[in-house]
Amino acid sequence: MTAINVVVNGKSYTREVEPRLLLVDFIRDTLSLTGTNIACDTSQCGACTIHLDGQAVKSCTVLAVQADGSTLTTIEGLANGKLHPMQQAFWDQHGLQCGYCTPGMIMAAAKLVEENPEITEAEIRHGLEGNLCRCTGYQNIVAAVAQAAKA
């Protein structure tokens, strides 16, 4: 076991973890933050996307020990008193159906817009290539990201 310290959604945690523990399992099982979902095992789907030291990453492809000393934001920590503009936009634009890909999609999209506020529709579509959704056909997700970019 290895001790790690992380700040997640503004709160500091020190935990003993097995080196092989995936960051996503640390978040979901050790910290009981189950908003971050798992939908594949080949780093393709993006359901587990979180922010690690300010960057969108797939937490299924990071070991918890690699995150030692890092600052993480998960979907539970995105809203700050009120909904984040990306959350609001997903609601307004019907950007979700079953909701399972939604946390990862919102976390990925929030970074896209932060890094490129003037984002075009084509850039949104390209920027979401690491996130799979089986319900929406992406159309309303793209609309949501466009709305949030303007917010």
Partner: peptide, 9 residues
């Protein structure tokens, strides 16, 4: 390469 999240890591 990959996608934005993959390129970040």
């Amino acid at each position: 390469i990959g996608d934005p999240q993959v390129r970040n890591r």
